[in-house]
């Protein structure tokens, strides 16, 4: 009934080979992005490798419209992260800690934006803004991005704080702590790793988003929109330089937060019955 050992060995090896090929598939375009930040393209389009050069890195701000767009994107990301993290965390807390009427419906409304094509979300929001004659720009972009980010934050926070022992809060209140002190000393440390993870996710999603943002941006350009608008006239190496720089910063930041978060969680592990309850980071 069992296949012979040599067959199983072949199976195991080919499974690994296939998985490594899959990782390469995911990894190669990122590598290309980094490598092509060192290219010196022959024309206006950075599509074909010509020769190694540091010109992009020594002159990163050569195209002010691209630099401005990146700064604009970062501003949007900060505002969106702040708003969405607060709103989403509150919703996630309510979904985990309380039972209430219409909880199922709220849960459905939270999940629905994640299961809808971006173009439909963006276009329907645009028709709202057009119908009330609201000109598009910074504010409409923030509104659009917070709209889908709230769902991500609530879902992430909900998944990571499920199974916590909330009686700790009651113990704290019973022992005479004020509710503010209880929130600061018990609730906040408990939910912090989940909230930080959700905030990072939101920041990344905000920088990454193109379709919804594009439909609701008006004349304001985020980094992706600027690239989209430039693509017919030029694709400069600075796009790759900025992307590589952002990649390096995000990787460093992610490692710091994950490592720091793990240490924090371990410290709290003694306090809680089930501190793990999460796989993603």
């Amino acid at each position: 009934m069992n296949p012979p050992n040599w067959l199983r060995a072949i199976g195991r090896v080919s499974l690994w080979v296939w998985a490594v090929l899959g990782l390469l598939f995911l990894f190669t375009p990122i590598l290309v992005t980094v490598i092509f930040s060192f290219n010196e393209p022959t024309g206006k389009y950075n599509y074909i490798w010509n020769k190694f050069s540091l010109s992009g890195w020594t002159d990163p701000f050569r195209y002010p419209e691209l630099t401005d767009a990146l700064i604009f994107s970062l501003k949007i990301a900060v505002v969106v992260t702040a708003i969405a993290t607060v709103l989403g965390t509150l919703m996630g807390l309510a979904m985990v800690k309380y039972k209430f009427r219409a909880k199922g419906m709220i849960g459905a409304i939270l999940i629905l934006p994640l299961t809808m094509p971006e173009i439909v979300l963006g276009f329907s929001l645009l028709t709202l803004f057009v119908s009330i004659n609201w000109s598009r720009g910074f504010i409409t972009i923030v509104i659009a991005q917070v709209m889908f980010s709230v769902s991500y934050v609530a879902t992430t926070v909900r998944a990571r704080i499920r199974g916590f022992d909330w009686r700790l809060e009651e113990a704290s209140l019973d022992l005479g702590a004020s509710s503010f002190r209880t929130f600061r000393k018990i609730t906040l440390p408990l939910i912090a790793p989940g909230v930080v993870a959700a905030a990072m996710l939101t920041f990344a999603l905000s920088l990454d988003d193109f379709i919804i943002t594009y439909l609701n941006s008006g004349l304001d350009n985020t980094f992706p929109i600027q690239i989209w608008n430039m693509k017919r006239s030029k694709v400069p190496v600075q796009i790759n330089v900025f992307s590589t720089a952002l990649l390096i910063i995000s990787v460093i930041l992610a490692i710091t937060v994950v490592v720091g978060g793990n240490r924090r969680t371990r410290k709290l592990a003694g306090l809680t019955a089930d501190s793990g309850a999460s796989v993603s980071s």
């Binding site: 990782l23 995911l26 990894f27 375009p29 990122i30 290309v32 992005t33 092509f36 950075n46 599509y47 074909i48 990344a204 920088l207 990454d208 988003d209 193109f210 980094f223 992706p224 690239i227 989209w228 693509k231 694709v235 796009i239 790759n240 992307s243 952002l246 990649l247 995000s250 990787v251 992610a254």
Partner: peptide
């Protein structure tokens, strides 16, 4: 490594495919 692509903007990732 699986999450890494998320750290490069969607549009730039797709441009890398063009390359």
């Amino acid at each position: 490594l699986v999450i890494l692509p998320f750290f490069v903007t969607y549009l730039v990732r797709t441009l890398s495919w063009k390359i």
